[in-house]
Design a protein around this nucleic acid. Structure first.
Length: 792
DNA sequence: ATCAATCCGTCGT
DNA sequence: CGGATTGAT
């Protein structure tokens, strides 16, 4: 939910800015946002288990859009569940399953349109899907990191460390995390974002007529944060009846949150949950000290330095427990599941975005031209460059020698290509695209079966394909495969299409050169004139420029050596590199090469087609089997993993006694925590609805305790002596990730299309508390293969 | 007037 | 997720 009402309240300091204004800057992006939206492009495929990577394409388009405008994106993904977020996913999950079932029913009736609507409501983003995105990011040398816990905290950290200069997200929480520059609402057509700067807070004043208006003049970060928490945040529901406005006003009066709460309690009109202030402090700790991944040291650190005082184990666990550096790195790279710590599963091995490394070679010539253009960038470009250098500067860990590629390559970005999109350029681009399209079609006619693996081998010189070109190609192919061939064809086509363009290299390069010069002209000439018409041009052309040198670097040799071109990982990260770690945030090396994941790649290389087979559901008894399995899962989850969640979500109303939920073992920890949480010395509130208070209290306690038990006291990696495989209850976690508080789960490729009815909701129903916070993700599909495995 | 709960769109054609 | 709307207090 973020902080509801905050964004409207900050309307007066929201400025719409053109992307070009951020040229030369590195901007951290909440990857979840794009993935989630991208899911809308292929909800049906996802829901029916058809392999797809359209959502990746969508997200990559955004990446290229930013790069087109000289912005270097730095993608950040959500990691594991934070105890503080007691998302009762149960309710949501139930709805998803419902929608899935309905969708399947409608689909079986031929009502595909309606079915899709249902599918839309039941799809969610999983870490495995994020990994697909990551594969593409690697291929294009885009920086990224998977947060150990919440992306929001990680985003804030990157900005705090000056690794990025702004954060692009959709969540108002970032401001509470202390971000200085938050960007919202990326408009791909207008090429604008809405910017909110912390420095403008002082300009937020209460105006009489505005519906939501608050005054932030003279407020410190701490006060602002207090207001946000009091008004209700993801970590702590607000005192009922208290919203942003009252929180703001009371805080202005009382100065400190404790005083506010005391005041509210004394007033007696609103009921203050027992232990609210303690929970308040925990929530505050999450905003201040949540653990994040530090790319330079390869370890987890606190968002801000903790002060030794007032720091105890409760808080420590609440803000996310520490994770062994080795695992933390793997998680950060996307090679380990942030929830289970198990090696990341590649749910779509056939999707192997090509590395740009290959392309760069031919581009070397182009580099010079781009450099030239850079020169043209002039003063502005210079400053931009400074920004970039800034970015790279602070990172000491970057081995000077290793991938010089990225930094130098990025420099060209400073050209500020973007702005100008003179008609000339546009025409040129269009012409090029058309040309390519024509050729492509021709080629297709010549060789209608591009999907054969052989073709994919010929990708060497493929010039980067413009997105528009890609689109065109995609379109052209659409007619080809019917529903019968499903995803695989597309997957293959993705690859082959690019290959098809290979022959275009020369032409493309040439065109590129023209483009560059055109761009320069545009830049010089009409910077302001621009905007929209260009909006329809694919950003990719510029991307060439941006990425070309970019990628050019490393060891071309190695990439060519690799015989298996399908393995993008190999391509994107030269095997010879063992210097990876430091470079994490730069060009994530793929550990995958040596990790278990290689299995998958092997598969893919064997045959792309086989993947399809893989995906196809087995007809037989899957039905019965599945149902029983589902039940099994739920039982397990609720009985086990869900325990913590149950506790939290739980019943603010029902269970008055704490015991049932909290792990029975009264570890000293448990006691401690309970005591800590319950000890609300400062507010001696009247005995208001003791029940409710108790319930809330219980919930919070349970969260802390349960979480601590699972993640802090017995962190999965604790068992790392051995293979860090799946923790305690491997099977369970593997397939039922929705068990986790945040609701991560495994994405299943095999979803049977026939009707499915959701599992008995006996347990779940009870669990869902009335005040369930909306979790972010939940399990939607059942992965038959996983389930099967689990049974085994 | 303020807050809380609900529904809706997000893509792309 | 934010946003808009409606309903309850």
């Amino acid at each position: 939910m973020g902080i509801s009402g905050l964004l409207p309240a900050l309307k007066s300091i929201q400025h719409t800015k053109h992307l070009s204004e951020f040229s030369g800057k590195t901007i951290a992006v909440d990857g979840y946002v794009w993935l989630h939206k991208g899911v809308f492009t292929c909800a049906t495929e996802l829901a029916t288990g058809k392999p797809t990577h359209k959502y990746v394409n969508y997200a990559m388009e955004k990446v290229r859009l930013l790069r087109h405008h000289g912005i270097e994106p730095y993608l950040v993904f959500d990691g594991g569940p934070l105890p503080a977020k007691k998302g009762t996913e149960v309710e949501r999950k139930r709805k998803r399953e419902e929608n899935l079932a309905r969708g399947n029913l409608l689909a079986s009736q031929g009502k595909h349109a309606q079915a899709r609507d249902c599918y839309l409501k039941c799809v969610d983003v999983t870490p495995q899907m994020a990994f697909q995105f990551i594969k593409a990011l690697r291929a294009e040398n885009v920086q990224y990191v998977v947060a150990p816990y919440e992306a929001d905290a990680q985003l804030a950290y990157l900005e705090r460390k000056k690794i990025v200069s702004a954060v692009l997200t959709e969540d108002s929480d970032l401001l509470v995390f202390g971000c200085q520059n938050v960007l919202l609402k990326l408009d791909s057509v207008a090429r604008t974002v809405v910017s909110i700067s912390r420095s403008d807070f002082g300009a937020v004043t209460a105006t009489a007529n505005e519906p939501n208006s608050i005054s932030l003049v003279g407020w410190s970060d701490s006060q602002f944060r207090a207001m946000a928490i009091l008004s209700g945040c993801d970590y702590l529901p607000s005192i009922s009846g208290v919203g942003l406005k009252t929180a703001c006003m009371m805080l202005r009066k009382c100065k400190t949150p404790a005083a506010v709460v005391r005041s509210i309690a004394l007033e007696g009109k609103k009921s203050v949950p027992k232990g609210y202030m303690d929970n308040f402090r925990l929530a505050e700790s999450c905003f201040l000290y949540q653990r994040v991944y530090d790319p330079s040291s390869g370890r987890l650190v606190h968002l801000t330095q903790v002060d030794s005082e007032q720091w105890d184990e409760v808080v420590d666990a609440y803000v996310g427990s520490d994770i062994d550096s080795d695992i933390a790195k793997k998680i950060a790279l996307g090679d380990a599941d942030p929830v289970t710590f198990a090696p990341m599963e590649d749910i779509n091995p056939s999707f192997a975005p090509r590395s740009r490394v290959l392309q760069e070679i031919p581009l070397s010539a182009a580099t010079s031209s781009s450099n030239k253009s850079k020169g043209k960038g002039k003063a502005r470009a210079t400053s931009a460059t400074g920004g970039i250098l800034d970015f790279f500067g602070p990172n000491p860990t970057i081995p000077p020698r290793s991938r010089s590629p990225s930094s130098p390559s990025r420099r060209p970005i400073t050209v500020r290509p973007v702005v100008g999109k003179g008609s000339g350029k546009r025409r040129l681009v269009d012409a090029m695209d058309q040309d390519l399209l024509v050729k492509k079609k021709k080629r297709q006619q010549e060789s209608p079966k591009p999907s054969t693996p052989d073709l994919t081998l010929s990708k060497f010189f493929r010039k980067s394909t413009s997105s528009s070109e890609l689109r065109a190609l995609t379109k052209s192919k659409d007619p080809v495969p019917g529903p019968s061939r499903l995803g695989t064809d597309k997957e293959n086509e993705y690859i082959t299409i690019q290959d098809d363009t290979d022959t275009e290299d020369v032409g493309s390069n040439v065109a590129q050169g023209h483009l560059d010069s055109e761009m320069d002209l545009d830049i010089d000439a009409e910077e302001s004139a621009v905007q929209q018409e260009d909006g329809y041009i694919s950003p990719s052309p510029s991307r060439f420029r941006d990425t070309e040198e970019l990628s050019s670097p490393p060891r071309p040799g190695s990439s060519f050596e690799t015989e298996d071109l399908y393995q993008c990982d190999i391509l994107s990260s030269p095997p010879s590199v063992h210097t990876d770690n430091r470079r994490l945030h730069q060009v994530p090396p793929s550990l995958s090469l040596r990790t278990p994941r290689s299995n998958f790649s092997a598969d893919s290389s064997v045959s792309i087609g086989s993947v399809l087979v893989h995906a196809s559901p087995e007809p037989e008894d899957e039905f019965a089997e599945k149902e029983s399995i589902v039940q099994l899962d739920l039982q397990h989850s609720f009985g086990d993993d869900l325990k913590t969640e149950i506790d939290c979500s739980a019943d603010s109303s029902s269970t008055p006694s704490p015991s049932p939920l909290t792990p029975d073992d009264d570890s000293s920890m448990t006691r401690q925590e309970i005591a800590a949480v319950e000890g609300d010395g400062d507010l001696e509130i009247v005995d208001i609805e003791a029940q409710e208070m108790h319930a809330n209290d219980m919930r919070a306690t349970a969260v802390a305790v349960g979480w601590r038990e699972r993640w802090a006291l017995n962190p999965p990696h604790a068992h790392s002596g051995k293979p860090r495989p799946s923790i305690d209850s491997p099977a369970l976690k593997r397939r039922e990730t929705n068990v986790t508080p945040v609701g991560r789960h495994r994405f299943g490729a095999n979803f049977q299309v026939s009707r499915v009815h959701h599992p008995p909701d006996s347990a779940p129903a009870k669990l869902s508390g009335p005040k369930a916070l909306k979790g972010r993700r939940s399990l939607v599909f059942l992965d038959q293969s996983s389930i099967r495995r689990g049974l085994d």
